[in-house]
């Protein structure tokens, strides 16, 4: 535990020493909100956006999208870069356990995800009219769950992908695909039904449902279960297949 705490703290400090990464993490929610939201978020028909209005739909969805960018792109690229450069091998030889390496990534991810999401909600509140959280504790709980899930998925990707380049390419691809198909881009109701069913196979879709359900007091069914299953599987597989070099 001491190692996990130390490593998390060091990793957080390392992140703050990279101004570009920090800038990106803070700019991304604003870009998503004002650009994506500007393009897709203006319609107000009652039969789309789960019947709750565009921005009430999109604010929780964008939180999911921000979290997904950390899990699919930042963490795998970072971990694979460590592997490529021999940092993981150094950790391994010095008895740093794999769970502490993955755990530290998850702690850092949670911190950035929280900062980005707060920024996103604050920025949205300045410009848009959207529903207030149905229950704040439920929203916080849902947020923690989905953030940890995507972080674990990121650790799994980073645990096995050989190079930072490979991780970044795959991460971007997954992120864009999920964004378009899982309802964080165009409203899911306007997608052809084939795309919509592919979309519902993506983790992001379920993450968005969990966030929206918590925020808006809706119930989309088994998404919560899917998120928990992905979380547990990611952790088990990451521990099983973690490669130090």
């Amino acid at each position: 535990m001491r190692t996990l705490a130390k490593l998390s703290w060091v990793e957080l400090k390392l992140l703050l020493r990279e101004p570009l990464t920090v800038l990106f993490a803070l700019a991304l929610p604003l870009i998503i909100l004002y650009v994506l939201g500007g393009v897709f978020g203006e319609e107000a028909e009652a039969d789309i956006f789960r019947g709750v209005g565009a921005m009430s739909y999109y604010v929780p969805a964008y939180i999911g999208l921000v979290i997904a960018s950390i899990g699919l792109i930042s963490i795998p690229t970072h971990l694979a870069g460590y592997r490529e450069r021999g940092v993981l091998k150094r950790f391994h030889a010095s008895s740093v356990p794999a769970w502490a390496v993955g755990g530290a990534e998850m702690v850092v991810a949670l911190v950035i995800a929280s900062a980005s999401s707060l920024l996103l909600v604050a920025a949205a509140a300045l410009v848009y009219d959207f529903a207030a959280p149905n229950s704040l504790p439920t929203v916080v709980g849902a947020f923690l769950l989905v953030a940890v899930m995507f972080a674990a998925l990121g650790v799994l990707l980073g645990a096995v992908l050989p190079t930072a380049r490979a991780a970044q390419a795959l991460g971007l691809l997954l992120w864009f695909t999920m964004m378009m198909l899982a309802g964080a881009g165009p409203p899911p109701e306007v997608l052809p039904s084939g795309m919509r069913s592919v979309g519902s196979l993506t983790p992001l879709k379920h993450v968005i449902y969990v966030m929206q359900d918590a925020w808006l007091g809706l119930d989309a069914g088994r998404s919560l279960l899917v998120v928990v299953v992905i979380l547990v599987l990611s952790i088990l597989l990451a521990l099983r297949f973690f490669r130090w070099e």
Partner: peptide
Amino acid sequence: LQESALPDRIKVWEALDLFASV
């Protein structure tokens, strides 16, 4: 190790402190 590295931005004392805690 013959070939290994630390994160570029880690400070010398932080590396020692981290590895000592393991």
